[in-house]
Design a protein around this nucleic acid. Sequence first.
RNA 1: GCCGCUGUGGCGAAACCGGCAGACGCGCGGGACUUAGAAUCCCGUGGUAGCAAUAUCGUGCAAGUUCAAGUCUUGUCAGCGGCACCA
Length: 808
Amino acid sequence: MNMKDVERKWQSRWEKAKFNNFDEKSNKPKKYILEMFSYPSGAKLHIGHWYNYGPTDSYARFKRMQGYNVFQPMGFDAFGLPAENYAIKTGVHPKDSTERNIATMEGQLRAMGAMFDWSSEIKTCEEDYYKWTQWMFLQLYKRGLAYRKEAPVNWCPSCSTVLANEQVVNGACERCGSVVVRKNLTQWFFKITEYAEELLTGLENLDWPEKTKLMQKNWIGKSTGCEIEFDCDTGDKIRVFTTRCDTVFGVSYVVLAPEHPLALKLATPEQLPAVEAYIAETSKVNEIDRLSTTREKTGVFTGAYCTNPVNGKKVPIYLADYVLYSYGTGAVMAVPAHDERDFAFATKYGLPIVKVIENTHGETVLPFTEDGIMVGSLNFDGLYGEEARSEVANHIAKIGKGGKKVNYRLRDWLVSRQRYWGAPIPVVYCPVCGTVPVPEKELPVRLPYDVEFHPDGKSPLAKHEKFMHTTCPQCGCEATREADTLDTFVCSSWYYLRYADPKNDREPFDREKVDKLLPVDTYVGGAEHACMHLLYARFFTKALRDMGYLDFDEPFLRLVHQGVILGPDGNRMSKSHGNIVSPDDYVETYGADAFRLYLMFGFSYTEGGPWNDDGIKAIARFMERVEKIVLKVTDYPSGGGMLGAEEKKLNYARHFAISRVSRDMEAFSFNTAVARLMELVNAVYKYDGLAEKNYTLLKNTVKDLVLLMAPCAPHFCEELWEQMDGKGSVFEQPYPKEDPNALVLDETEYAVQVNSKIVCKAMVANGSSNDEIRDLALSLPEVQEKTAGKELKKCVVVPGRLVNLIFG
RNA sequence: GCCGCUGUGGCGAAACCGGCAGACGCGCGGGACUUAGAAUCCCGUGGUAGCAAUAUCGUGCAAGUUCAAGUCUUGUCAGCGGCACCA
């Protein structure tokens, strides 16, 4: 078969018949199958795209044949940093390079032969999309879910520009090598923490990989504890959060994160220079290093003191970078006797270590961090663990110094980016009215084309006079626009909704359409999105629900992660490793179907692994074998009356394949699905080799083979189906259904074990009782030989599997 | 460092709920066809010992639970993903 011609032929037929477009009028049950959209940073599809989209398209086709009205859209996540970096390097405008990349990728995606509904394509960088991204921002703002506060960015002092974490290599700027510092800017946030609890509990009912749910759970990081207020001598109050308030009598100092607003305020004049130096020093250390438990603890005394509310003791206030301003209250009470980090810090700085918890079983070795009995804690002495914490927290609440508190590790989502290639934040700053949202009817706030990218201390939009200069929507006086753009994760937090109504120019989507098509039934994409994109999208769905724009709680009912295809050397494919394998040559040589089929067969879908093309020829051979037998059998006459043992065997193989391929396709276990197809082909060849055969059975079996295989090799099977005189498209055929009767055998082979070691095999008639199976096993000569004179102690029968005889 | 995952033949992998480890395929060995090669077809193929029947070892490593462990538990080593401005 000339696959090139066959691919073109069927692709153009599908196109003409609008075969891949979602049929809104159909009354079949819908199935929204979605792959994460493409990011057009490179010009061409890479193996990762193929690996994500090829097999998932086979799943979508499988569902279609099973009678579902399948919606499988595709689009481009087109804003983002790489296009802008590319522009800085080459001078090619991000819009131009992105559009060019999209055009190439689109062509390649079409050539893949996937069932994408191109009529609902989305590109997030286009006005008619980002207009609604801005609209989303305004809705969140209206509802109090968008706000501004100071937050640090990575700042390269020599390029005078903000750097992404990715651009910071070992604490230095990737371009010029200067040491990167953290600098505070006022930036926009989305209040995702408001939904922390629901984002956590909502995980429960989702059909997602357990590991992904666990990662999100840990990311949200709920912890139940107590907030405690320490009064400073200056009159300021330091609030700390702790999960171990039962240790509060052992506090020997309080630590503020270096970024804490009180840090400079509390510092005494003598200590101020040291404090300032320390703050400057820690601004160069990233959070990952700061949290490292092996890194040596550093800190500085502020010179100030505060009072422990439970015992009136004065304790010194320190700054230390192992405390993060972004978590909890940005301050902790330090109990060196019962916390590893505090212990290390106190030891280094010679601070007191006071034991207030005793081990109930054995000696108390400090630091002792497990639950224990309170000691040296006045009238709380003798209380244990959870009860102790509850009593102490109640006491703290009673004296008005805090109380029980639930804390989340999850932080609000910083959406400001000091960059050009993104959706402008639709806000105006007016000297009179302050922060004013752009009225909805004035959207979109257009991203100007003529900008200067070269980094020189100001973000590109801030330098664009015409863009920045505007009038206040409220009072009409001169005002400036927000120069920052939105994080691209904002664009990708709602695209799955826009697909349902992509051309709507009055609203982001029609509610009825969205409620009908959504939620997404199956979402397929990389596991690297577990904590961010997938959490942000869930947040958007919930916020939009609460604002009355849609009627479901979760965007993605089922989630599947494809694995990562690594380079042949086992490293992630990258230019710097020089190990990039392009799909193009393979597609050119073997065809799109063979390449897809190989991706399905050669890897465990959710695992991925190093690239290796050893098996791709085998796939081509397999397809040839299928083609040969299909053409041969098609020419056979019908009829043939015999229905003997061989026919039963063939029919068993046929229905076994139907049963297992269906099950494996549903489970995204594509490699085993293809293996079962191969077994069926082997069985057909074997039967075809017999002198006498039942032609009708053989023809029907081959017909089922083509139907089973169609989702995995769509062009190839369309062509075979046509040559078999099948009517219409093979994808309009129902997927074969197994006949349970064909799968019933008279007897099953059991493994016979003596003392858990396999001795022999035995055929057991189906329907035998456990006692019958035991007696049969005992009567076997191999068993008797091993057990002569011994007494049977126990017998385990595993139905359909084995019998284990335990002798004394 | 923290969170999560993975580790099975020469290779890609499979193994439903704890039940015959290695399905399917690659590679390799042998054979058929052929003047020859390619292609195709058939047989074999975890390691070790043995002519063989067979024995014995075997799922990163070390323990444990169980009639039975690749699968569960604890510890440990290695690799991968994420760690909030790559997306």
